[in-house]
Design a protein around this nucleic acid. Structure first.
Lengths: 339, 339
DNA sequence: TGAAAGGTTGGTAACGGTAACATCATTTCG
DNA sequence: CGAAATGATGTTACCGTTACCAACCTTTCA
């Protein structure tokens, strides 16, 4: 049973009076800072617990000019990729006293500005945000904040402070190489039409460049709007194959639509990977367990989160050039012919 | 190009000096509060923009005793269900000036305590947290905070202040009713073994009670540890059917493992829904596009988020009895025989 | 024309903590 | 045994903003 509570919120002073020591000493006890005798510590803790006192970080932060928050700004929570990055961040932040605060932009630059402004107004001790492309106002805010700023996911471009991620151009190129090595030649692409998804764009660019070096151009492409789902993958796969029946490979911009395409092809009796190969992107293990494992690229999401968090937390130094490059990993799966 | 910046962070005073008015007036302009002439407003905004001033909510919050944050405490981000709830919350909070701050507990009561304590120390203007079961310290903290506290997802139990959700007992019972009505009799259950997932437990209880009323008991059950995935669904389905080949229905505790089970059964050539029926729970539309649509119950995730947010934001009054009961909706899909 | 009313601006005192330093008691050690 | 080091506690001055009230300047209208 807690004590009855007046309407006035509790402050250090209440704990101080209840335990017969100064507010300063109470503060020291509650933060485990400085020397306090075991006896007073005990008195104070008992009093605090009895009253149900919860420290006020607003006041504390103002006084100390330090806030244990890390702003994390990501485009979306509705596919599996960013929650996994978050998992990495939060795991690595766990023993640092730092706490992530998440803001979602829905891939909108103006929302990114707004979210960033809002987060900075809390004076966090670091910022982690997705991508290298930001509006002018956003860059202006970040250029001189005097905090660690880590841009994640992508390293194809210039970082404001530090970037942690993979090269999506390279991921695209490597997938192209694997596909060509496996002997496929009439290749189609299915992806989302989101001008703000720069990583998908760069992946496709790297993919096409590599094809071009082998004298090959994409035989077909199909774009869609909105979120990715199995259903979307089915529809687009049907459409692209109706239009270009001669295709022997489909490169999807993510695993979810890739899986939809795979299911559709299997139902229609396509010979996979013999006559038709399929590949996605991300390497989400949620989809393990489909009739065949989809060929894909592991985007190193958890690692990206971890490394970014380590840098913000000061567990690991910012590299000289500001770039932490992780390697996208090709996962052969079952939907590409074995070399 | 922004102006060069000294190391000292900007304050209202800087903007005040740059625009030739008092700090108080600058504050009024930036908050759109009180009367300010158009001319000064313009001057101030220009100065603020030029300097790149970002208000300090720490100081502002302390002075005004108001903070535009809503604490949202959920068990997990790694399945689709809580992100969807979050989507509902954030959509409804969008035009209120309130901002959700998310804490994740990983289904651990002690982490819930810690996260709650931490969030309360920021003096948010409301709390939304999953479930009705909380530790004693957590209840003590919440009983007298003097803020709107909304417990979500579940309404089978006592709310601290307000609860918004569905009855999982009812959801389970209704699914049992549908299954029996469709003529299935030898029913197996596959679910996660998480003592802290009270909703899954209540669902199963409601399910079994309803079966019991018809004189039927579960013919088999299979539990697993850890996250849900298609793969897990496959394995457990294989196991339970190996053990009890006579089963004619499988009730899964969520759609993801249900989908895994479905894929496995289809591969093995089971006659679905003729000889074997399957059902999951949640109604995640991510999985639309499987070879058959899994029978399931829509848990009303987005609505729950919206209603909870509306109550916290004061857009909608707290109901007399403190309970906002939404109806779980049966989604027949293709994996149960039509009545 | 002068008082009232309303719009616009500024001064001052909080808000609830913490940093930095001061103070006093106790221990350590040459 | 006295000086210096160390431990334990308190005092004071902020941190950057907003609430509240006072002051001033117009405009309105009897």
């Amino acid at each position: 049973m807690t004590t009855k509570r007046t309407s006035r919120p509790l402050t250090l002073r209440d704990v101080s009076e209840a335990s017969g020591v100064s507010e300063m000493t109470v503060s020291r006890v509650l933060r485990n800072r400085g020397d306090v005798s075991a006896a007073t510590r005990e008195k104070v803790l008992t009093a605090a617990r009895t009253l149900g006192y919860v420290p006020n970080k607003i006041a504390g932060g103002l006084a100390s000019q330090r806030v244990n928050l890390v702003a994390v700004i990501i485009p979306s929570l509705s596919n599996m990729v960013f929650p996994e990055v978050l998992g990495g961040i939060s795991a690595e932040l766990d023993d640092t006293g730092l706490q992530p605060v998440v803001g979602v932009t829905n891939y909108s630059p103006s929302r990114e500005d707004a979210v960033l402004y809002d987060m900075l107004s809390w004076r966090p001790s670091g910022v982690i945000l997705a991508g290298l492309e930001h509006s002018l106002p956003a860059r202006a805010m970040l250029d001189n904040v005097g905090l660690p700023v880590v841009e994640i996911m992508d390293i194809d471009g210039d970082a404001i402070d530090t970037a942690v991620g993979i090269s999506h151009r390279r991921a695209g190129a490597e997938m192209a190489a694997e596909i060509l090595a496996a002997g496929y030649r009439r290749i189609g692409f299915i992806g989302t039409h989101m001008p703000e998804d720069h990583r998908a764009r760069k992946r496709l660019a790297g993919f096409e460049e590599h094809l071009a070096q082998a004298g090959i151009t994409l035989a077909a492409r199909e774009y869609y709007q909105g979120g990715s789902s199995l259903q979307k993958g089915r529809e687009l796969t049907e459409r692209i194959l109706a239009r270009e029946p001669e295709l022997d490979f489909l490169y999807f911009s993510n695993d979810m639509i890739g899986a939809g395409g795979l299911l559709w092809c299997l139902e229609k009796g396509y010979d996979i990977p013999g006559k038709l190969g399929l590949a996605g992107f991300n390497g989400v293990d949620l989809l393990d367990g489909l009739p065949m494992r989809l060929t894909t690229t592991d985007a190193r999401r958890v690692d990206i989160g971890r490394r970014a968090a380590r840098i913000v937390a000061g567990k690991e130094p910012r590299p000289e050039n500001g770039i932490v490059a992780l390697s996208p990993t090709f996962l052969p799966g079952d939907t590409i012919r074995k070399g």
